[in-house]
Computed example of a mutant assay.
Amino acid sequence: MTVAGPRPTRGDAPWDISFLRVGASVTAVAALVGALVTGVVGGWPDAVGVLIGAAIVTAFFAVSGVVIAWAGRIDDTFTLPAALGMFFVKAVVLFGVLNALPEDGWLDRRTLAWTVVVGALLWSLVQLRWVWTRQLYYVPPPAPPTASGTPRPDPEKPASGG
């Protein structure tokens, strides 16, 4: 026999997707530098491939972030299926994009594919740093102290009488 207790209430904290702005900024800088270096070394059509690859990665991470945050607002248990589903969709879309490009076209598929790989690693590093530098609470944070420096009473706890 299982006893099901009351379902925990959803927190009021919104899902934070501010890493998207940081990731897009870092990707833009890296893409510009990468495109310049690639243009000088490998040719300007390859440089365009770097810029398009960076745009694809940024779009993929932005869509995933928004979908996962949306799923998390509904219920935390939906975030993993949303993340795995988005990963599958992105892989299928990327496979389709790369296969749709002609082998000898103006856009080098290999440059584009390597840019997507490097961009995904860069975005992963941005997300890791973003998580490691945030104060993320696994329980509700304590109330800030009052102006006199004494802790505020916790509204969740009953007042203790003497």
Results as ranks from 00 to 15, higher is better:
77 T>D: 13
124 S>A: 15
17 I>L: 12
125 L>K: 00
131 V>N: 01
65 G>A: 06
109 R>E: 05
73 R>Y: 07
58 T>R: 07
66 V>W: 09
40 V>Y: 11
70 W>H: 15
23 G>E: 04
68 I>N: 10
93 V>N: 06
147 A>L: 15
85 G>Y: 11
94 L>F: 13
75 D>S: 11
6 P>C: 03
40 V>S: 09
129 R>S: 12
18 S>W: 09
142 P>T: 12
134 R>S: 07
83 A>Q: 11
126 V>G: 02
150 T>A: 15
82 A>G: 05
111 T>C: 01
158 P>H: 12
40 V>D: 08
33 V>Y: 01
104 D>C: 01
65 G>W: 02
81 P>F: 14
51 L>M: 12
102 P>M: 02
95 F>S: 10
119 G>C: 05
103 E>R: 06
23 G>T: 10
107 L>R: 02
13 A>M: 11
112 L>Y: 05
27 T>K: 01
158 P>D: 11
86 M>D: 04
132 W>K: 01
97 V>A: 09
103 E>Y: 00
86 M>C: 13
12 D>F: 15
135 Q>S: 09
36 L>Q: 04
123 W>C: 03
61 F>W: 07
86 M>A: 10
3 V>W: 06
4 A>T: 15
94 L>S: 08
54 A>R: 03
53 G>N: 04
60 F>W: 05
14 P>C: 03
108 D>G: 01
74 I>G: 02
105 G>Q: 07
36 L>N: 00
25 S>K: 03
1 M>Y: 10
40 V>F: 14
102 P>R: 09
32 L>T: 06
95 F>E: 01
120 A>M: 09
114 W>I: 08
42 G>I: 03
106 W>L: 11
25 S>E: 09
70 W>Q: 12
59 A>Q: 01
34 G>W: 11
46 D>Q: 13
157 K>T: 10
82 A>L: 09
29 V>F: 09
18 S>H: 09
54 A>G: 10
162 G>E: 11
92 V>D: 07
84 L>D: 04
13 A>R: 14
155 P>M: 06
14 P>E: 12
124 S>F: 11
31 A>G: 07
65 G>C: 08
94 L>P: 02
6 P>E: 14
21 R>N: 02
85 G>C: 02
146 T>D: 12
70 W>S: 09
78 F>T: 01
107 L>A: 06
87 F>R: 00
17 I>S: 15
82 A>R: 08
153 P>E: 12
110 R>H: 07
133 T>W: 12
52 I>D: 02
43 G>H: 11
151 P>D: 13
90 K>W: 10
69 A>I: 05
121 L>H: 00
112 L>I: 07
136 L>M: 08
18 S>E: 10
153 P>Q: 10
127 Q>G: 05
148 S>I: 10
138 Y>I: 15
127 Q>L: 12
54 A>W: 08
12 D>I: 07
15 W>R: 13
41 V>Y: 05
73 R>C: 00
58 T>Q: 03
107 L>Q: 02
69 A>T: 06
58 T>N: 03
125 L>Q: 01
4 A>C: 03
81 P>K: 12
21 R>E: 07
22 V>W: 09
39 G>L: 09
122 L>P: 03
125 L>P: 00
55 A>M: 11
100 A>W: 14
10 R>Y: 04
28 A>L: 15
